Simulated scan of single mutants.
Amino acid sequence: MDLPLPLIKVEGTPSECGVAYGAAARAMIAANTANYLDRFAATGLDRPAVRRAGSLFRAASRQHAPRVAQLLDGVAEGSGVPVEEIYALNARTELLYGNRATECTSIGVLDSRTASGHTVLAQNWDWHPAQRPYTLLLATRDERGSTVLTLTEAGMLAKAGFNDAGLGVCVNMLTSDRDGRPGGVPYHVLLRAVLEQRVLGSALRVACSTPRSASINLLLGQSFSAGVPDSVGVPGEIIDLEVAPSDVGVLNPIDGVITHANHFEALPTVHDTLRDIGSSSLFRSARARRLLGSLPIAEKDIQGVLADHGGYPQAICRHDADALTEEDRSESLYAVVLDLDERRMSIAAGPPCQADTYHEVRLTGLFA
C-alpha cells in the first residue's frame, strides 16, 4: 500500500492492541517522547514534573475512559517508555496549553450536499513541522470486532479518524480561560473514547460527559448507510461540539455544511483567549464555507479548499514561513478526507497545495 506515512495494524483486547502498537512503533514512540520532553522543558516542565502530571492524567483516564487507559498502559509496556511519560505525551495539549499556536481547519458536508451522496469530513492537521517524522496511521480491531483507523502521533491514540460503524471525527484546538483545570482526561484520550463509540448519540454523550482540562472542537459525523436496521437510504448526520472544561457549545449544519477553525463560535459562556491576540482562525472557517459554494460538492472541491492560500502563509493551507519563535512554528502537516459511507480515508502529505495525490486507505479488507 503506497502511503506517505507508516500504517500500523494491531488486533486484540485494548491491552493487547496497545502492547502490539508500542512494540511496532517502539523507535518512533521513543523519539517522539524525547521530542516532547524537550518541548515541555522549554516551558519550564522538567522530567519529574512531566511524570507527576502524567500520573494524574493516568488516574483520570483509568476512571473515566478505562478501555482507552488499557490501550495506553499497553503502549507503555510495548514501547518500553515509562507509563507516566506516555500519558504526558497524550496530554501534550494540556501541558502546552499556554502555547497559543493555532492549528487545523475542519469541514463537514452532509450527503445531501456532496456530489457522491456520501457524508464527508475533512481537515488539515496544522502543527509544528518537527512532528512530521513522528506521525503515523493506526488501525485497530478489538476483541469485539470494532475497527478504528486514525491519523495520530507515535505513542498517541487518535486524531482525525473513523470506525467501521461509519462514525468519524475531525478536531481543532481551542483555548479558553478555563484550560488547565485539574481532574480531566487528556484531549487525545477523549478523542479516542469518542472513536470507540458505535452510535453518534453515544459519541456525543462521551464527548460531553467526560471531564476535561483543555478546550477542544470535535466535528463529528456518521453515515447510517450500513449496520443499522432499515438504514438504507437514511441520510447521514454531522454535528460540531465546542467542548470546554465544564461547558459545551453546539453547531448544526447550515445548508448541509459545517466548517470550523480555532475560535469559539457557539459557546459565549467562556472567554476565548484566542480573541485576546487575534488569529487567522477568525476568517478561515468562514472562508472555507464560502469557497465550498452552493453547488454539489465533489471531493476535489474539498481538497481544493484544504489547499487554499488566502491569507498566506497563515491560510487554510498553512505554511511554515513567519513564526516569531521556534515554538510558534506551524504547518499543514497532513490533509485528511474521510468518506464515512465508503469507510475510506484519503490522506495527503502537507502542505496540501504541494500534494500530487491523495492516498486511500479503506477499512474493508484491512484486517482480511
Score class of each variant (00 low, 15 high):
residue 243 V to T: 09
residue 206 V to E: 03
residue 141 R to Y: 08
residue 32 N to V: 04
residue 243 V to D: 01
residue 176 S to C: 10
residue 238 I to P: 00
residue 125 W to F: 12
residue 95 L to R: 02
residue 201 G to L: 14
residue 260 H to F: 00
residue 147 T to R: 11
residue 106 S to K: 00
residue 284 R to S: 08
residue 15 S to D: 04
residue 249 G to S: 08
residue 253 P to Y: 09
residue 340 L to I: 05
residue 120 V to L: 09
residue 270 V to R: 12
residue 220 L to S: 08
residue 269 T to F: 07
residue 13 T to W: 06
residue 230 D to H: 11
residue 367 F to V: 08
residue 231 S to I: 01
residue 108 G to L: 01
residue 109 V to A: 06
residue 296 P to A: 10
residue 157 L to I: 13
residue 351 P to T: 07
residue 300 K to F: 11
residue 261 A to T: 07
residue 56 L to Q: 05
residue 211 P to D: 12
residue 208 C to L: 04
residue 244 A to T: 13
residue 247 D to G: 14
residue 142 D to Q: 07
residue 221 G to N: 06
residue 239 I to Q: 03
residue 359 H to A: 15
residue 340 L to S: 04
residue 73 D to G: 09
residue 90 N to Q: 09
residue 215 S to W: 01
residue 341 D to R: 10
residue 64 H to A: 12
residue 279 S to F: 03
residue 64 H to V: 00
residue 203 A to T: 07
residue 283 F to H: 09
residue 343 R to T: 10
residue 215 S to L: 09
residue 339 D to P: 05
residue 105 T to Y: 08
residue 298 A to D: 09
residue 183 G to K: 00
residue 62 R to M: 13
residue 365 G to Y: 02
residue 46 D to L: 11
residue 159 K to Y: 13
residue 362 R to M: 11
residue 150 T to H: 08
residue 92 R to V: 09
residue 294 S to E: 15
residue 114 T to I: 08
residue 62 R to C: 11
residue 110 L to N: 01
residue 337 V to S: 04
residue 119 T to C: 10
